[in-house]
Protein backbone atom coordinates (compact mmCIF):
# COMPACT_ATOMS: atom_id res chain seq x y z
CA UNK A 1 0.00 0.00 0.00
CA UNK A 2 1.35 3.38 -1.03
CA UNK A 3 -0.43 6.73 -0.93
CA UNK A 4 0.90 10.21 -1.70
CA UNK A 5 -1.24 13.12 -0.50
CA UNK A 6 -0.74 16.82 -1.18
CA UNK A 7 -2.45 19.41 1.02
CA UNK A 8 -2.57 22.96 -0.30
CA UNK A 9 -3.90 26.14 1.18
CA UNK A 10 -3.02 29.50 2.65
CA UNK A 11 -0.90 30.10 5.78
CA UNK A 12 -3.09 29.87 8.86
CA UNK A 13 -5.56 27.26 7.52
CA UNK A 14 -4.22 24.42 9.64
CA UNK A 15 -2.38 22.76 6.81
CA UNK A 16 0.50 21.49 8.97
CA UNK A 17 -1.82 20.03 11.60
CA UNK A 18 -3.78 18.13 8.94
CA UNK A 19 -0.55 16.75 7.54
CA UNK A 20 0.66 15.64 10.98
CA UNK A 21 -2.64 13.91 11.79
CA UNK A 22 -2.60 11.94 8.52
CA UNK A 23 1.04 11.01 9.10
CA UNK A 24 0.64 10.02 12.74
CA UNK A 25 -2.31 7.85 11.80
CA UNK A 26 -0.17 6.13 9.16
CA UNK A 27 2.70 5.54 11.58
CA UNK A 28 0.39 4.10 14.23
CA UNK A 29 -1.09 1.86 11.54
CA UNK A 30 2.42 0.48 11.06
CA UNK A 31 3.24 2.25 7.80
CA UNK A 32 6.45 4.11 7.00
CA UNK A 33 5.67 7.77 6.53
CA UNK A 34 7.23 11.06 5.42
CA UNK A 35 5.83 14.57 5.43
CA UNK A 36 7.20 17.84 4.17
CA UNK A 37 5.76 21.11 5.37
CA UNK A 38 6.14 24.82 4.80
CA UNK A 39 7.38 26.33 8.04
CA UNK A 40 8.70 29.86 8.32
CA UNK A 41 8.10 32.85 6.10
CA UNK A 42 5.44 31.21 3.90
CA UNK A 43 3.18 30.80 6.90
CA UNK A 44 2.49 34.55 6.87
CA UNK A 45 -0.61 34.45 4.61
CA UNK A 46 1.42 32.84 1.81
CA UNK A 47 0.95 29.66 -0.22
CA UNK A 48 1.49 26.58 1.92
CA UNK A 49 1.78 23.04 0.71
CA UNK A 50 2.25 19.91 2.79
CA UNK A 51 3.14 16.57 1.34
CA UNK A 52 2.38 13.27 3.05
CA UNK A 53 3.76 9.99 1.76
CA UNK A 54 2.70 6.77 3.42
CA UNK A 55 3.49 3.15 2.77
CA UNK A 56 6.47 1.21 1.45
CA UNK A 57 8.67 2.89 -1.10
CA UNK A 58 8.25 6.39 0.31
CA UNK A 59 11.72 7.74 -0.48
CA UNK A 60 12.27 11.42 0.12
CA UNK A 61 9.50 13.58 1.49
CA UNK A 62 8.85 15.47 -1.74
CA UNK A 63 6.21 14.05 -4.06
CA UNK A 64 7.29 14.33 -7.70
CA UNK A 65 5.10 16.57 -9.87
CA UNK A 66 2.21 14.80 -11.55
CA UNK A 67 2.26 11.80 -9.23
CA UNK A 68 0.23 12.55 -6.09
CA UNK A 69 -2.72 10.22 -5.54
CA UNK A 70 -4.80 12.74 -3.63
CA UNK A 71 -4.99 16.53 -3.50
CA UNK A 72 -6.67 18.11 -0.49
CA UNK A 73 -7.28 21.74 -1.38
CA UNK A 74 -8.21 24.03 1.50
CA UNK A 75 -8.62 27.08 -0.74
CA UNK A 76 -9.84 27.26 -4.33
CA UNK A 77 -6.93 28.99 -6.09
CA UNK A 78 -4.41 26.93 -4.14
CA UNK A 79 -6.24 23.76 -5.14
CA UNK A 80 -5.79 24.69 -8.79
CA UNK A 81 -2.12 25.54 -8.19
CA UNK A 82 -1.71 22.19 -6.44
CA UNK A 83 -3.07 20.25 -9.42
CA UNK A 84 0.47 20.31 -10.83
CA UNK A 85 1.31 17.68 -8.22
CA UNK A 86 -1.65 15.38 -9.00
CA UNK A 87 -1.34 12.28 -11.14
CA UNK A 88 -3.62 11.68 -14.07
CA UNK A 89 -6.93 10.39 -12.72
CA UNK A 90 -6.07 11.38 -9.14
CA UNK A 91 -8.57 12.37 -6.47
CA UNK A 92 -9.25 16.01 -5.54
CA UNK A 93 -11.18 17.19 -2.53
CA UNK A 94 -11.58 20.92 -2.90
CA UNK A 95 -12.90 23.44 -0.44
CA UNK A 96 -14.93 26.09 -2.26
CA UNK A 97 -13.58 28.85 -0.01
CA UNK A 98 -11.77 31.66 -1.77
CA UNK A 99 -9.19 33.73 0.08
CA UNK A 100 -8.39 36.81 -1.95
CA UNK A 101 -4.79 37.84 -1.40
CA UNK A 102 -3.93 41.49 -0.96
CA UNK A 103 -2.40 41.42 -4.43
CA UNK A 104 -5.92 40.99 -5.86
CA UNK A 105 -7.43 43.84 -3.81
CA UNK A 106 -4.58 46.03 -5.00
CA UNK A 107 -5.26 45.07 -8.61
CA UNK A 108 -1.87 43.41 -8.99
CA UNK A 109 -3.25 39.98 -9.84
CA UNK A 110 -6.45 38.22 -10.80
CA UNK A 111 -8.77 35.81 -9.03
CA UNK A 112 -11.48 34.21 -11.17
CA UNK A 113 -13.27 31.47 -9.18
CA UNK A 114 -15.59 30.41 -12.04
CA UNK A 115 -12.67 29.88 -14.41
CA UNK A 116 -10.92 27.86 -11.73
CA UNK A 117 -13.88 25.58 -11.11
CA UNK A 118 -14.39 25.04 -14.81
CA UNK A 119 -10.69 24.21 -15.16
CA UNK A 120 -11.04 21.64 -12.39
CA UNK A 121 -14.14 20.18 -14.06
CA UNK A 122 -12.24 19.72 -17.29
CA UNK A 123 -9.30 17.82 -15.80
CA UNK A 124 -9.36 14.04 -15.63
CA UNK A 125 -9.29 14.21 -11.82
CA UNK A 126 -12.01 12.63 -9.69
CA UNK A 127 -13.00 15.78 -7.90
CA UNK A 128 -15.25 16.55 -4.97
CA UNK A 129 -16.21 20.13 -4.17
CA UNK A 130 -17.51 21.04 -0.75
CA UNK A 131 -17.97 24.13 1.37
CA UNK A 132 -15.70 22.99 4.16
CA UNK A 133 -15.35 26.42 5.73
CA UNK A 134 -19.12 26.80 6.07
CA UNK A 135 -19.33 23.31 7.56
CA UNK A 136 -16.53 24.22 9.97
CA UNK A 137 -18.50 27.29 11.00
CA UNK A 138 -21.49 25.02 11.58
CA UNK A 139 -19.30 22.83 13.78
CA UNK A 140 -18.24 25.80 15.87
CA UNK A 141 -15.43 27.70 14.17
CA UNK A 142 -14.12 28.23 10.66
CA UNK A 143 -10.71 27.37 12.09
CA UNK A 144 -11.53 23.64 11.96
CA UNK A 145 -11.86 23.67 8.16
CA UNK A 146 -8.84 21.35 8.10
CA UNK A 147 -10.67 18.74 10.17
CA UNK A 148 -13.77 18.95 7.93
CA UNK A 149 -11.44 18.19 5.02
CA UNK A 150 -9.95 15.20 6.83
CA UNK A 151 -13.46 13.90 7.51
CA UNK A 152 -14.27 14.23 3.83
CA UNK A 153 -11.08 12.40 2.85
CA UNK A 154 -11.80 9.63 5.36
CA UNK A 155 -15.26 9.03 3.87
CA UNK A 156 -13.82 8.14 0.45
CA UNK A 157 -12.24 4.93 1.71
CA UNK A 158 -8.93 5.53 -0.05
CA UNK A 159 -6.75 5.89 3.03
CA UNK A 160 -4.75 2.83 4.06
CA UNK A 161 -6.42 2.94 7.48
CA UNK A 162 -10.07 3.20 8.49
CA UNK A 163 -12.05 6.30 9.43
CA UNK A 164 -12.24 5.39 13.09
CA UNK A 165 -8.49 5.22 13.35
CA UNK A 166 -8.03 8.64 11.74
CA UNK A 167 -10.70 10.11 14.00
CA UNK A 168 -9.02 8.68 17.09
CA UNK A 169 -5.60 10.04 16.12
CA UNK A 170 -7.20 13.43 15.43
CA UNK A 171 -8.73 13.40 18.93
CA UNK A 172 -5.38 12.43 20.46
CA UNK A 173 -3.69 15.40 18.83
CA UNK A 174 -6.36 18.08 19.46
CA UNK A 175 -6.42 19.85 22.86
CA UNK A 176 -9.23 18.37 25.05
CA UNK A 177 -11.38 21.52 25.15
CA UNK A 178 -11.57 21.62 21.33
CA UNK A 179 -12.43 17.95 20.85
CA UNK A 180 -16.21 18.31 20.58
CA UNK A 181 -15.99 21.00 17.91
CA UNK A 182 -13.47 19.02 15.91
CA UNK A 183 -15.44 15.82 16.24
CA UNK A 184 -18.46 17.64 14.79
CA UNK A 185 -16.27 19.07 12.05
CA UNK A 186 -14.94 15.63 11.17
CA UNK A 187 -18.48 14.19 11.02
CA UNK A 188 -19.78 17.04 8.87
CA UNK A 189 -16.90 16.54 6.46
CA UNK A 190 -17.53 12.82 6.36
CA UNK A 191 -21.22 13.28 5.60
CA UNK A 192 -20.59 16.01 3.02
CA UNK A 193 -19.21 13.51 0.55
CA UNK A 194 -21.90 10.96 1.27
CA UNK A 195 -20.31 9.11 4.16
CA UNK A 196 -22.84 7.42 6.42
Amino acid sequence: MRLDIVITGVGGQGNVLASRILAKAAMEWGLPVRTSEAIGMAQREGVVMSQVRMGEGAYGALIPDGSADVLLGFELAETIRGLAKLKSGGVVIANRQTIYPVSVSLGLSQYEPEQMISYLENTDAHYHLLDATALAGEAGTYKCTNIVMLGALASLGILPYDEKHLKQVMLDVIPPKLRDINLRAFELGRQALGGE
Partner: peptide, 10 residues
Protein backbone atom coordinates in the same frame (compact mmCIF):
# COMPACT_ATOMS: atom_id res chain seq x y z
CA UNK B 1 -4.44 26.58 -15.38
CA UNK B 2 -6.27 29.91 -15.63
CA UNK B 3 -4.43 32.94 -14.19
CA UNK B 4 -3.82 32.33 -10.50
CA UNK B 5 -3.42 35.08 -7.93
CA UNK B 6 0.04 35.97 -6.69
CA UNK B 7 0.19 35.09 -3.01
CA UNK B 8 3.49 36.06 -1.43
CA UNK B 9 3.90 35.99 2.34
CA UNK B 10 2.82 39.30 3.88
Amino acid sequence: PPPLPVRPPI
